[in-house]
Structure formats: structure tokens, C-alpha cells
């Protein structure tokens, strides 16, 4: 692993029966970079994400990640529930929030592993449990303030507009003190104004918290706008990884992605 590499995917393969969802894929992500993963429908983008976050245990390959303590670890050896402790957190394609909890409580779910007090301490509301709850609530408030959502923090998630829900998911991810965030289609279902705002937000998050971002998105304008580098895959195979301008010019990407037609 290079000095400023944070994530290195090496020869990743994942099969579903006879279907090769991901086939010998390798790429590298550098620190504080925004990387887009693109590809036609069914190219295996979400599968790659699921492999990185250990929802799927890959059939072949290695995924090296530089964690919070700057140790290089192979994510394969780590349980799905422990991935977050190393500073890797993801959001979901479909919103996966708890509708009948308030916004701030939803965000506190992201801080689940930062509580040190156990269930008995919570039942007896011992000082440590109360202190932790108070401190993390304070922190959640600051995260919400950063996303300009603090004025609705006590409202229920149910009934909030789609753009707000997306932001809450990002806030929940930020709550975990991540080193890298994986965003699965963050702009899906947003209108143009909201998409622009989101692009600004993602860059802002990167600059403010020094967080690396990987995202999958179908909105090409958004991907070209926000990403430093783009990785293109097709049918689980690696095509190219470069800056937006170079990716547009890349013949293989054009063919795979647009069926041989010219871009634009």
C-alpha cells in the first residue's frame, strides 16, 4: 500500500452462483479524495460496496484499508458490525432510517459503538450512562448544526422530505467519526437544486472533516461535478480509473457505458 492510499481493492471477485457480479476488480483510493464508481445497470457497483463493508464475504481477493489508528488491515478479517469501529461507514440506496424516532435519535444510532456503558447502567441511569448520553446528544446536535438541520432535530423522521432524509443518513454516518464514507446513490430522487446542494455538501464534508468519500451515482452531471477521480466498471470488470475529463474521452468507457454512441 502506498503512503497516501487509504483503500486498496486487490483482485476482488464475487460470484452469485454462475453469475460473476464482480470479476477480478482492483483499484486504489487515496486519502481525502472523492471517488465515483460508475457503470451501467447491473455492473456490480453496489456489490463492490457490499463487499467492502463486509455484507458479502468475497470469494477471492483482498481489501486493504488504513484504519483510524493508521494500521493497514484486511477488511476480510473483520465482522460486518465491527467495520464501523475502524472508521468506515456507509449510507444506503433506499433510505434506511427509523421513521418513528426523532431525527436526533436516528443520528445517535450512528454513535452506537461510542457508548461504553452497558444495559444495566442504562436501566439504573448511573452517572456514566447519563453523561455519555448527554455528551453524544451534544455531538449529534453539532453534526446537525453543520448540516443546518438542528432546527428540526426533535421532529420525527416520518414525513420529512426526501432531500432531508438523505442528509440525515449522511449525518448518521458522520456521527461515527469516520475516515471514509461510502455513499450509495446519494443524489437519487433529488431535484436539481438539492443535487447541487448535495455536491457542495460532500465537498464541504471532505474539506471540514478530512474524510475520503466513495460514491455510486447514476446522475453523470453530479458525478463529473463532484468527483476527483472516477472508476468505471462494466459487468464486474475494471474499465478505467481517471479524472472526469479523461474518463469522458476513454473509448472503453464510452462503448460499455453508452453502447458505442458518442458522449453528449
Amino acid at each position: 500500500m502506498n503512503k497516501n492510499t487509504i483503500l486498496e481493492v486487490k483482485n476482488l471477485s464475487m460470484y452469485f452462483g454462475g453469475l460473476k457480479a464482480v470479476d477480478d476488480l482492483s483499484f486504489e483510493v487515496f486519502e481525502k479524495e472523492i471517488v465515483g464508481l460508475i457503470g451501467p445497470n447491473g455492473a456490480g457497483k453496489t456489490t463492490v460496496f457490499n463487499c467492502i463493508t463486509q455484507f458479502y464475504k468475497e470469494d477471492k481477493g483482498e481489501i486493504w484499508f488504513k484504519n483510524k489508528d493508521d494500521e493497514e488491515i484486511n477488511l476480510n478479517d473483520i465482522k460486518v458490525t465491527k467495520v464501523i469501529n475502524h472508521g468506515l461507514v456507509r449510507t444506503f440506496q433506499n433510505i434506511e432510517l427509523v421513521p418513528d424516532l426523532s431525527i436526533i435519535d436516528n443520528i445517535l444510532i450512528g454513535a452506537h459503538n461510542q457508548f461504553k456503558s452497558g444495559i444495566l447502567e442504562h436501566i439504573l441511569t448511573l452517572p456514566r450512562a447519563r453523561r455519555e448520553e448527554k455528551e453524544l446528544r451534544e455531538k449529534a446536535h453539532h453534526v446537525l448544526e453543520f448540516l443546518k438541520l438542528h432546527y428540526i432535530k426533535d421532529m420525527y423522521v416520518a414525513g420529512q422530505p426526501y432531500g432531508v432524509l438523505k442528509k440525515i443518513e449522511i449525518a448518521r454516518a458522520l456521527m461515527a467519526n469516520p475516515k471514509m464514507i461510502i455513499l450509495d446513490e446519494p443524489a437519487a430522487g433529488l431535484n436539481d437544486v438539492e443535487t447541487d446542494e448535495l455536491a457542495g455538501l460532500i465537498r464541504h464534508i471532505r474539506d471540514e472533516f478530512d474524510i475520503t468519500v466513495i460514491l455510486v451515482e447514476h446522475d453523470m452531471g453530479f458525478v463529473m461535478d463532484v468527483c476527483d477521480r472516477i472508476c468505471a466498471i462494466s459487468f464486474g470488470k475494471f474499465l478505467a480509473m481517471d479524472t472526469a475529463e479523461e474518463i469522458i474521452k476513454n473509448k472503453a468507457v464510452q462503448e460499455a457505458y453508452l453502447g458505442g454512441d458518442d458522449f453528449e
Binding site: 463493508t53 455484507f55 460486518v80 458490525t81 465491527k82 467495520v83 464501523i84 469501529n85 461507514v89 456507509r90 444506503f92 434506511e96 432510517l97 427509523v98 421513521p99 444510532i109 450512528g110 452506537h112 459503538n113 448518521r172 461515527a176
Partner: peptide
């Protein structure tokens, strides 16, 4: 609500 989201939150 969602086992996947719960697991990814630890």
C-alpha cells in the same frame, strides 16, 4: 426497521 443498516452502524 432494517437489519442491514443496523449492522453497518455496528
Amino acid at each position: 426497521r432494517s437489519e442491514h443498516a443496523a449492522q453497518s452502524m455496528g
